[in-house]
Design a protein around this nucleic acid. Structure first.
Lengths: 237, 237
DNA sequence: CTCCTTTAGGTCAGTTCGACCATAAATGAG
DNA sequence: CTCATTTATGGTCGAACTGACCTAAAGGAG
């Protein structure tokens, strides 16, 4: 009865970036203020359109460099999933692929071409803000993915600028999970997991308290058995 | 200074399906023989183009119904990741999103519109075959994802038609992981994990050996602590 | 020197797991 | 009927890991 329409639909594809870091013990995400319509001036995740001849990974790294001044090698991006609701972008049919990055505390990013400004925002605050497109949903999903990643991999160490102390590493877990961890049990876990952290022999002398031994990231990437959140301890208010 | 070319590139997006099942104790994947160029007649994963107004999930379920006769509700599809190499499809710029499904042994799928034939193929055999596009890579990734899923979720139970025995469930793990498991320890794990399997009270009388109690799937979806592959035991040759 | 803070390390009970053994419940052969 | 075979079910034992908790070490401030 009806004419058979070509089933193919031309869409545009973007890569959006969720770049997380820990600053002053709290989890931050890198946001930009949109420099173009739609959502002009509204906060959003950095990202942009995939170009011809580019893979999604390449597009993600290019956008990261353009909009934040961070380069491949400084930060590792990992693909998470695609978001495809037909009306998620008022410009038309745009499917986005979200990328997650865990980054050490880096120099403040610089404003780029597509972005009026890039800045670190408290994750808690970003989630309470109305972000452009479906970026609130993307941020929520990436945050949960990051929490799971910390359970099963040694990824938390990339949040730390080397050399770091066991307490530095613990603060990362506490910031991402939003809960306090027992310092003693945490130490036992990370020091007895082969390849998680390697001692440098040096020490750091804080303003107060006993000096702490310094470590660098080890070669291990998987954490078996995992380091699980128990939900037992409450976040410090 | 220079004209700013629109950085946007129009691409086509497909959803490709990796539908796994266990038949006669061995892991199979659903393949089609391509009914259209390119790769005409060559085996491939089922899948197709996303249409206007459709999410990726909707496209995946629609393609599954069209090409295999399996419907939403019978099988649960889950998005895995996107594949975006610029030259992965000779027709032009096509990005695909892979979907993974674990299915109980279902009636042989019927031939559909886009596919000359859909059939179950041994995973081992499929991986040794040259599949269309980058489907070998997609299948490998999905297979590893399925193995991880069995470790951390109760997903293995959806491979079993209800009611099933503990041995049925164990055979699923053995097929997907390619290794033998200790029947006694496996039973202890699955029966003591609340909500994994629920006894029906019935029993199944095999040709030989003691009858086995029958179970249905429980309500739990996560497996904590996980059921880990140890790599200890070899697959039966 | 004494207090305070933070790191470092130890104890102890409870849980889980792998390896292994023992028993139960069915069938079929002699 | 008896026994061997097969598979299901259940128990034991020690190793490993964890959470809760405790103690000591190493620095600075007063």
């Amino acid at each position: 009865m009806s004419t058979v329409r070509p089933p193919r639909s031309h869409v545009q594809v973007t890569a959006d970036l969720v770049i997380l870091t820990v600053r002053t013990g709290e989890l931050h995400v890198l946001l930009i203020d949109r420099g173009n319509p739609p959502y002009l001036g509204q906060p959003a995740l950095p990202g942009g359109f995939v170009r011809d001849g580019e893979t999604l990974d390449q597009a993600a790294y290019r956008e990261m460099a353009e909009e934040t001044g961070l380069h491949e090698g400084e930060v590792v991006l990992e693909q998470l999933r695609a978001y495809s609701k037909p009306d998620r972008d008022p410009r038309g049919r745009v499917i986005t692929v979200a990328y997650l990055a865990l980054s050490p505390e880096l120099p403040l990013p610089v404003a780029g071409t597509d972005a009026a400004e890039a800045r670190w925002v408290l994750v808690e605050e970003a989630l309470a803000t109305e972000l452009a497109f479906d970026h609130n949903e993307i941020l929520r999903d990436c945050l949960e993915a990051a929490r799971v990643r910390l359970e099963h991999t040694t990824a938390a160490a990339v949040f730390c600028r080397e050399p770091f102390t066991v307490a530095d590493l613990r603060h990362v877990y506490e910031a991402v999970w939003g809960q306090r961890l027992d310092p003693s049990n945490f130490r036992r876990k990370v020091t007895k997991t082969a390849g998680f952290i390697e001692p440098t022999g040096g020490r750091r002398f804080p303003d107060v308290g006993r000096p702490a031994a310094l470590y660098t990231r080890g070669s291990a990437t998987l954490l078996v058995p995992p380091l699980l959140r128990t939900g037992a301890e409450e976040p410090q208010h």
